[in-house]
Design a protein around this nucleic acid. Structure first.
Lengths: 216, 216
DNA sequence: TGCGTACGCGTTGTATCTATGATGTGCGCA
DNA sequence: TGCGCACATCATAGATACAACGCGTACGCA
């Protein structure tokens, strides 16, 4: 008799389902989800669904309207601007704090960059995106501020959602990303805080212009 | 027959109840709340209690342990440092952006300062604290970044919780606060961004030293 | 024909009930 | 006396049932 595979909690399953749906645009911005639908879709009751929706609202992906449903927030120009501005603020702050960089941090970043190169070479776009994300998160995490780290993770989620379309339209971007990461790493190693900040500023803001055009 | 007063939703009542309890230290840090207790205390069923606890966890006031209960997070030195650092980051950023200050912003800040003075003179400590909070929030809100505004509100909640004890131990602090607010306002009006930032930096960090001593 | 009202459906909000897992305690055995 | 196992207790996790509310629609009346 096989030991019964322990499913992750129902609430987490719903959470993952909805988040994926929203991030991958399977649920369009502006769509109105109802608890019943989701419950059926995932195969659980409405109780865990409510939990998941609550968490997602706290993250800013959806907005709950009483007695109406969960609105998948459409990405607005305002949101893009806010996300980019906040990312810059948090990440540049962390970078300043990270100089001079510890050997551990440098090693970890190097490893991540290496991995991303391999993934890019292998055409694994999704994997490269994940690694890219880790690269930046690692810098922020090195600041040791839990509040900022959590915030940053949420920002990356939201940006991911805006970025899917843009990314596909600019496949060469991955190369630029790699180069820029190398520059950042080099600047970190040399201990030039302002250079790091400048590079990150440019690196983060690259698509704010592009994205702006996409959403009008 | 009076039209029955419409109660706010049960979930909101629980949320407010717990939040108050935690912020005012009626629920001590380290205490383990159970859904059943809270449900009885507020007079609702456990379902809305869960909702409230979820929201509070997202705000970082409590931590939910599966099958155990809701732990009221004790304020740690780490948390104090994180909150202060993040407040400085957000508020200084907003201040830089706010220069040169719009007449509307200046007017609003003046009004708030005036009100706080009156409250302080009348001995209305709680009211003055609320107004103080609005003063800072107004500056951040003027930046027009919703993400940062929301974050900032949460930070003020958490700081409020740490600050109660400290505040009572230093009743003269209110006077200093007023003076500093006036300085900030003056600097804003003169358009000297760096002066504003410097003042805010000092103003926000004033108690990080004090608080550190209190929690060991 | 135009407006106002009443009804019906769909959705969330809340309560209650059951299942399951965690924890501490006490008994039995070595 | 010390260790280990079984059980009682209590918490959450989830499902289900019910109530309340909002909104659109259709009907009736002027």
């Amino acid at each position: 008799m096989r030991p019964p595979v322990k499913q992750p909690p129902a609430a987490d399953r719903v959470y993952a389902h909805v988040k994926e749906g929203v991030l991958e645009r399977r649920y369009e911005g502006g769509a109105l989800l109802t608890e019943g639908e989701l419950a059926d879709a995932v195969g659980v009751s409405r109780t865990p669904v409510r939990e998941a929706l609550l968490r997602l609202e706290a993250e800013g992906l959806i907005k709950l309207y009483p007695k109406k449903g969960a609105l998948v927030l459409p990405v607005s120009a305002q949101e893009i601007a806010d996300v980019v501005e906040t990312r810059q603020l948090v990440e540049e702050h962390a970078a300043r704090k990270a100089v001079p960089a510890s050997p551990q941090l440098l090693a970890r970043l190097e490893e991540l960059l290496e991995r991303q190169k391999e993934q890019a070479a292998a055409g694994d776009l999704a994997g490269a995106a994940v690694t890219d994300r880790c690269f930046h998160a690692e810098i922020v995490r090195s600041g040791g501020n839990e509040i900022l780290s959590r915030l940053y993770d949420q920002l990356r989620d939201r940006q991911l959602r805006m970025g899917v379309a843009v990314m596909h339209a600019h496949p060469d971007r991955i190369t630029k990303t790699l180069v820029e990461h190398e520059q950042i790493l080099r600047a970190l190693r040399s201990g030039d805080a302002e250079a790091v900040v400048g590079l990150i500023h440019g690196h983060v803001s690259w698509f704010s212009n592009l994205a702006r055009g996409e959403v009008r």
